[in-house]
């Protein structure tokens, strides 16, 4: 995965970038399965590797597929990135170790979901239960965001057709 990302950053042919992005998404989905997040992995495989690849290709079709040579040497961004690595590593050292069952995120709300979800909702898949029932407002807002994004794309890409009709008249 790291190799894919490094090649991605260096490659200037955008078509290769898009294909690599698909590969990267599939690898990410595999990692997510290994981490027990089956629902998320399924979404990542279908959304990340499927739909967004198609969308990127569609956009590429409308734009040039070759990136221009960068004018400047990327030293400043590299320096910024390196300093951010330093800060993030420093912060990560304070986080709980991998698979630590006493970490705060395992002791707070989650035991209630795991113990009571079956009795309260009758749905064995806790992810679905939390998604649709306990956090129903979240998902409602999220659906609205997707809807709004769709409307935004329509608004952005539809306009030229109308102006053309006007000029035709």
């Amino acid at each position: 995965m790291a190799i894919a990302v490094v090649v991605l950053a260096r490659s200037r042919n955008l078509f290769a970038v898009v294909v690599l992005m698909g590969i990267y998404s599939f690898l990410m989905a595999t990692v997510l399965v290994a981490l027990d997040a089956v629902d998320v992995a399924m979404t990542e495989a279908s959304v990340g590797a499927g739909i967004s690849t198609v969308l990127l290709l569609g956009a590429l079709h409308l734009c040039k597929s070759e990136e221009a040579k960068p004018l400047r040497k990327p030293w400043l961004p590299l320096a910024v990135s390196a300093s951010i690595v330093g800060m993030l590593v420093f912060g990560a050292l304070g986080l709980p170790a991998f698979s630590d069952p006493t970490a705060p995120m395992h002791t707070h709300v989650v035991p209630r979901y795991l113990n009571d979800a079956m009795r309260e909702t009758g749905v064995p898949n806790v992810v679905t239960a939390v998604l649709a029932s306990y956090r129903g407002y979240d998902t409602l807002g999220e659906t609205t965001v997707v809807f709004t994004a769709g409307i935004g794309v329509i608004a952005l890409l539809r306009r030229r057709r109308n102006t053309k009709q006007e000029t035709a008249k």
């Binding site: 997040a37 979404t43 959304v47 998604l131 956090r135």
Partner: peptide
């Protein structure tokens, strides 16, 4: 399960 739920929404919003 809680982070799974959050990230599930994040992926779909991300593609949007």
């Amino acid at each position: 399960p809680l982070p799974h739920v959050l990230i599930l929404t994040a992926i779909v919003v991300g593609v949007a």
